[in-house]
Amino acid sequence: MFGEGFLRTIEVAALALILALVLGIIFGVISTSNNKVMRGLARVYVEFFQNTPLVIQVFFMYNGLAIAGLRLSVFVIGVLGVGIYHGAYVSEVVKTGITSISVGQVEAAKSQGFTYIQYMRYIILPQTIKIVLPPLTNQAVNLIKNTSVLAMISGFDLMYVADSWASSSLDYGPSYVFAGFLYFMLCFPLATWARKYEERLKHKDTARIPFDPSEEAVTC
């Protein structure tokens, strides 16, 4: 039982992380563009999802959308809910990364004839990796832990399994301690890996990092 819940948590977390990275990069890039409408759009997204509780967002998708006739599986709600919520935070991280790159880089790229999308992709975003990786890992760890919100809508994730195990066996202590241990086993290696990666980059200032968001997601 715990095994299934654990796997479900990993699946939801992995897919939600990919979604959060994709949304975060898109909205992070948009929020640094010159277009006011686009910037406003990114602002609304970030403020809305950062300033309302994840639980309510997930309840809304579970109950609210169902009333509107859109019935999503708990799994999909987990991925969308957690992914969109953390996408807002990733967007802020990406934005900070982009604004920390010197304006000379953009000018060099423009003078060579790169378009906005092209210079973001080839020149600016790859340079932000070093800067955004530590806060991004924090996000990934938080994201994994936040998938436990699924327990509140019977998500069959690790937290839900712990809940039902505890209430049926009345072994509350061992059940939650074990669930906590499994979350730790997921999050701790990730945090450690990221710390080492960061150290390595610091030592090797000239390191070359390919920019591929999916690559980071897979490691979780």
């Binding site: 000379g104 880089q105 060099a108 003078s111 060579q112 790169f114 092209q118 070359r208």
Partner: peptide, 26 residues
Amino acid sequence: AMVFQSFNLYPHKTVLENLTLAPIKL
């Protein structure tokens, strides 16, 4: 093409890659 006061080379790319990026992509 333009040459800047502060060089503005792409720091994440080697010298050779700095020279080939625009010709390859553009």
